[in-house]
Design a protein around this nucleic acid. Structure first.
Lengths: 141, 141
DNA sequence: CTAGGGGTTTGAGCGCACTCTAAGTCAAGG
DNA sequence: CCTTGACTTAGAGTGCGCTCAAACCCCTAG
C-alpha cells in the first residue's frame, strides 16, 4: 500500500502520515524499489488505535510515550497499562464534565424556547412566504 | 472587583481576562479613578457560561458570534438558540464517540491485565521480567 | 518522447488559544 | 519619601498539531 492509499483508508492525510513517522508515532515505513513508502495492512490497526487516543484527547507527547514503551518490548506491558488506565480516568472525568455541561446547555436552550413561545404564542407559520405550510413547519421544528 | 480578584474567582488568569476583553468575548470593563478595571459580580455568570462553552469544545470564534448576537439585542434570541442547539448536537455526538472509545480502552486495558495474570499467575506484587510471548507486533497496538 | 500523477525531502507557515515581556502608572504602607 | 506590588498598554512569543511549499524523482500511458 502506497502512502496515498493509506491516507484514504486511514483518514489521515499523506502529510500527516509522514509527520507522524517523523516524530516517531508511526514506525519507519518499508520502501519499494523506487524509495517510496510501502505499507502493510497491519499499520491500519495501529493508526486506528492512535486515532482513538487522539479522539479521547491524549496529547501526541503521551502517545509517543506509549509508542516508545511498545517498541521497548513486552516487559513494558505494566507501564503501558498504567498509562492507559490514567488516560481512561481522565477521559471518564472529562465525560462527566461534558454531561454536566450538556444539562446546562439544554436548560439554556429551554429558556430560549420558552421566550420564543411567549413572543409568538399563536402563530407557528410566521416564516412561511406562501401557501407552503408543511415546509415552513419542517424548517422550524 | 479588580482584575486580580476576578482572576481568582473566575479561574481565568488576568492575562486571559484582558485577552478576552480585547477580542470581544468580555465587555469593556468599567474603570476606577486610576484607570483600572473594576468588575461587577455579574461578570462571573457570563464567564461561567463561556467556560462551559469552552469545556464543550466551542471555538472562540463561535463564542464571539454568540456574544455578538447577545449584544445585538433580544431579537437575536432565535439565532442564539439555533447556535446553541447546533453546538449541543455536536457535543452529544462527541460524547457518544468518547463513550465508544472508552469501551475500546477498557478492552485494551483488560488485555494487559490478562497478560499480567498469565505472566505472574501466583504473585501480583512483582512486575514482569520474563515470559516473552510471541511478538506479533504489528497487529498488537 | 513527453506529460501527468504519484511519490520524495527539508523546512517554513498556519490557526488556535493563550501567555508573557517591557516599560510604564498608581496607591498604600513603613 | 520610598518601596512594593497590583495594575496599564502594545506587541511579541509559545506550544500544539498539523499543513503546505519548493524542488526534485520516478513510473506509466498515450
Amino acid at each position: 500500500m502506497k502512502i496515498g492509499e493509506l491516507a484514504k483508508r486511514s483518514g489521515l492525510s499523506a502529510h500527516t502520515i509522514r509527520y507522524y513517522e517523523r516524530i516517531g508515532l508511526l514506525p519507519f515505513a518499508d520502501r519499494d524499489a523506487g524509495g517510496r513508502r510501502d505499507y502493510d495492512e497491519s499499520i491500519l490497526v495501529w493508526i486506528a488505535f492512535l486515532d482513538r487516543l487522539k479522539t479521547t484527547g491524549m496529547p501526541i507527547r503521551e502517545m509517543l510515550h506509549y509508542a516508545a514503551l511498545r517498541a521497548e518490548g513486552d516487559h513494558t506491558g505494566p507501564a503501558r497499562r498504567a498509562l492507559l488506565e490514567a488516560h481512561r480516568d481522565r477521559v471518564r472525568a472529562h465525560l462527566s464534565e461534558l454531561q454536566a455541561c450538556l444539562l446546562v446547555l439544554d436548560t439554556k436552550i429551554d429558556t430560549y424556547v420558552e421566550a420564543e413561545k411567549r413572543t409568538q404564542p399563536h402563530d407557528d407559520t410566521r416564516y412561511s412566504t406562501a401557501g407552503d405550510q408543511s415546509r415552513a413547519r419542517a424548517a422550524r421544528p
